[in-house]
Design a protein around this nucleic acid. Structure first.
Length: 200
DNA sequence: TGGGCGATTCGCT
DNA sequence: GCGAATCGCCCAC
């Protein structure tokens, strides 16, 4: 029987802009619960929207470490969000995991989220951390060892991109990537971003 | 379908 | 003190 290939830390030892789209379609599991990554965003320390932009602090220290580790932070005082650190050590770049299509341990995710709608279980960075049980306690853990597991995608996927969500700086950069046509997204992508500005 | 708002913690100025 | 890589709820259209 075919066993999916597991991703190693070496997968992340490249530009965030290469890694981010390649994470779409990869299966992310945490303690054996999770699903297919459908949405991510790339952040690099030269990017004003990145947490590492203003230099290293205790909170973002993991971003300045080696690639292939989880950077987990508290968002808006309420939610947890998980990133995959990329590039060489000190590059301080990471990919924010924003949404999953739930596939494994769906019952556990429904219980943690207190809801039944599978489309809303992991469709947002805070939602997916709640569904998987990821918290600050897992900041700095390697992504290629338990409790994390990453399974390579089995087939090629169609990827769309667009501007990142919820940021005020560098909001125009198209560094959000998604699985084309997926219903498991935090927000839909405009696949035909034709400005509807009417010419006078 | 989309905008406004409150909740709530914490890092950093 | 300020504001944030969010979410869920309410409302209007």
């Amino acid at each position: 029987m075919l066993v999916p290939r597991k991703l190693t830390r070496a997968f992340f030892d490249r530009s965030v802009h290469e890694v981010a789209p390649e994470l779409i379609g990869v299966t992310l599991l945490f303690n054996g619960v999770g699903g297919v990554i459908t949405e991510v965003e790339a952040y690099h320390h030269t990017d004003p929207a990145a947490h590492s932009f203003n230099g290293q602090t205790p909170r973002n220290a993991v971003m300045f470490g080696p690639p292939g580790f989880a950077y987990v932070y508290r968002s808006y005082g309420i939610h947890w969000c998980v990133n995959a650190v990329c590039e060489r050590e000190g590059s301080a770049s990471a990919v924010l995991i924003r949404a999953l299509q739930p596939t494994v341990g769906v019952a556990a995710m429904k219980r943690r989220r207190g809801m039944d709608d599978e489309r809303l279980l992991c469709s947002g960075p805070g939602r997916l951390c709640e569904a998987l049980g990821i918290t600050r306690a897992h900041d700095g853990l390697p992504l290629d060892r338990a409790p994390f597991e990453l399974r390579a995608r089995a087939e090629a996927v169609d990827i769309v991109s667009g501007p990142r969500i919820g940021i005020t700086k560098a909001a125009d950069l198209p560094w959000r990537y998604g699985l084309k046509g997926s219903r498991y997204l935090s927000k839909p992508f405009r696949e035909h971003p034709i400005p509807r500005k009417r010419a006078r």
